[in-house]
Structures are given as structure tokens and as C-alpha cells.
Write a protein that binds this DNA or RNA. Sequence first.
DNA 1: AGAAGTCTCGC
DNA 2: CAAGCGAGACTTCTT
Length: 476
Amino acid sequence: MDLLSEKFLGYEPVHIEELIGKKGKTQGTMRDVEIEKVKEYAGEDADITLQLKNVFTPMLKTKEVEKVFNEVENPLVQVLVDMEYEGIRIDEEFLKEYSKELEKDAKKAEESVYKQAGVRFNLASPRQLGEVLFEKLKLDPSARKTKTGQYQTGEDVLLKLAAKGNDIVENILIFRELTKLKSTYVDALPQLICKRTGRVHTTYGQAVAVTGRLQSNNPNLQNIPVRTERGKEVRKAFIPRDNKHILLSADYSQIELRIVASISGDKNMCEAFREGTDIHTATAARVYNVDEKAVTKEMRYKAKSVNFGIVYGQGAFGLADNLGISRTEAKEIIDNYKKQFPGIQKYMDDTINFAREAGYVETLMGRKRWLRDINSANFTVRGFAERNAINSPIQGTAADMIKLAMYKVHTAMKKAKMQSKMLLQVHDELVFDALKTEVKELKPLIIENMQTAMKLPNKVPVIADCGEGKNWLEAH
DNA sequence: AGAAGTCTCGC
DNA sequence: CAAGCGAGACTTCTT
């Protein structure tokens, strides 16, 4: 059954109450919602019992995990149902216009590529593109191939070719960007606008992502472009329900790094957060052993990359590749980092050792992730599990925190009898349709509840910021 | 028609 | 070999 069509294509939405267990169902309310989601995810004929067992077995094994179920997941069900039901309004006309513009400019870039290559082919095919770039034009004699024998033509590869002055590559990158925006967002979103509500209604997966994060599909509203200028335009299409409302966006500041500092207990990083200075600048000052005022843009940029890499278990090779620096320099930076933040290194070692003994890692709330490969004899396989071990407690604790916050905010809004609605969650961000007359009261309500949803150990402060505007881009 | 592979969007 | 978690468009191969 398609939850979306049942909800909005003329049927009375009574089944929602059934789903959330208001009619005498005291047990397994979340399971009922999840059955629908599993069906959507795995297909109508999926073995639901088996799927659900896989989903909930890790959660029901110990008292700590029952806590995650009882305090985080079950209360969240109603919040998610409300958000999905509400949906977010889309400026269809704007997207239709933008689509024409993208079409025109993509075509232009495409024709330029064919002219420069001296041959017409399917530019949307990585395989054909690779053959043109590396066999016909011979742009890079040492071009690397994928495991299936075709040339790699990913953005990183193309950017390196562009840096060597290959004009054709610029147009390929433009073509890729514009066709991506057009097909995935600009043309796809209008098709998902519900006729009856005039809005798009995403579906959230509550027990799909292994770390405890939410997942959004049909449409995925957790990957709307924001990085490039032409990508940002898409966000202008997400608008308030009417002129009495505005969009409001509240997001956690550096939440994953704060959690790293907190659960590792690293003195220097905890202190940096308590001081309230910019964390990447503070990191650069330590790694390069200079005063914070002497930190250059480049130093900060590199420190930022290390901070993110740490969260993912990245090594010297990955950092060098990412920053385009030598492996020697990358190793030097990482060694300095570990010296300056010894608690971080200890956290990584301790976490991997714990996982080897226990077979799992867990978040501050006790959410578990099982790691069956953590003792594998295979270097590569074990390496993956070790990076999972480092990352999961961090990503998962952030997920626990915002899930708790969502319930708290939702409850507080109901208690204050507000008409404003929570619409979207994007991992560290919540988006609201805010009645203009409620904004003044709503903003502090959101920020206060987000910041106090979960107390972090070692006195690491949690900060949330809030913006508003006539579309999602302005609010962000 | 569906699976696999590649690529790109977000946090 | 080498950076975590996702969705989804498109091409190409398999059934």
C-alpha cells in the first residue's frame, strides 16, 4: 500500500489513527507504521516479520535499547506522521520556468562538448564519455579505470583535468550540474505535488538508516541542493503555505564535532567549545601552533577538512586526496592533530577495542550498531567495520538528540496551541511553516528545546541557530 | 523489467 | 586499499 496516495488521493485519512494505535492498540505502534515503510522499501511481498525482526532485534536486546525505543522512537512516530501529513508547499510555476532555463543552458554546454570533441555521443553516459576523453582525445595517459573496466569520469577526475587547462571539461561539468538539477529536482518535484493539498509529502524512514538517522524519500527532501549558485535556486521553490506564514529553519551548530569532543572527553576540544570560538580556527591554531589571530584562510580550511575526516575515520591518504596536498604533509597535519587532541585518538582506539570485544558500538542513549566484521581477518573488510565503529556513535548520538528535540518541540507547540507546523528534518536542521504572529514566541521555543533535548557530558554546550524568510533559501 | 554500476545531491 | 550515512537519475547488462 502506498501511504502517500492513501493519505491524499480522496480517501479519508482514518487509517493514520489506526496506524499510530489510537484505537486500543497499546503495543507495537511503531511496528505498524514501520510495516508500511518496510513494504514501501522492500516491496509488497517482502517477508515483513523477518524484516521487522532485523530492524528491531538490535533495539530490543538490552534495557538500554528499550530506552531508545521508549524515549526516542515511539514518541517520534506521531511527530513524523504529522510532518508527512502536513507537507511543504512548492512554487510550481517557478520550477517550470527554471526548468526551461536549465534545459537551454545544458543544451548549450552539450553542443560545445561535441564541437570540442569533434564527435557526437551520449554525454550522459560515463562510459562513452570516458572513451572520448581518454582514447580519442588522450587527455590523461594514466587515466584510472573502474572495476568494470571503464574509465573513471567522476567530478574529482574532471576537476583535475580542468585544472590542466582542458576547456572541454568545463562544459562537461556544467552539463553534469545542470542535468542533475533538472532531472532530480526541478522536473521531479512538481510531479510529486499532491493535487488536493498543493504540497509535497515526503515519507520518513524511521528504522532504515543503520546509525539511527531518519531517511526521506518520495521525494527525498534531505538532499535539496545548497552548495552552488544554480543549485540554491531550487530552494527558492520551497515556500510557506500562504502570506500569513514564513519559513523558519533552525539548525544545530557543529553538532557532530561537539559530540566527538563530549564523548571523547578531549580536554582541548571541549575547552574550545566552551570558549565559544570558531572550532576550525581553534583547531588550526593548535595544529599549526600559532595564535588564533594568525590563522590564515588556508590553515582554517585544512583544519576543517581534518575535523570532518576524523569523524569518518579518514587517514592520511584520504586527506591528501581531498586537499590536493602531499601525503607527507597530510600525515604531518594528522600527527600534529593527534598530539594536540590526544583524547580523540584515545576515543578511536578505545571504541575499536570495545567493538572487538562486544561486537557492537553504541550511542549516548544506548542505541546499538552491530559490527559483525570488526574481527575479520580481511584488512579491507575490517577497516570498514572500524570506521563504522568510530563514526556510528557520533552520527547516532546526533540522531538521538534531534529526534528527542523534535518530540519536545512538537509537544511544546501543541501545548502553546500554536498553528505553526514542523515540516522537515534534515539531520541537524528542522524546518517550520511559521504563522507570522507566532514567530516571536516560536523561535525561542524551538531553540530552547533543541539545545536542552540532550545534555552532553563534559560541559560541552549545544547551540542551535534559527533563521526566517519567504523561502527555504532565505530561511537557511 | 529488474539489477548492477556510476555519478551527484545533502548532512 | 584509502571518508561515515542516505536517495535517486541515468546507462548498460541480464533475464
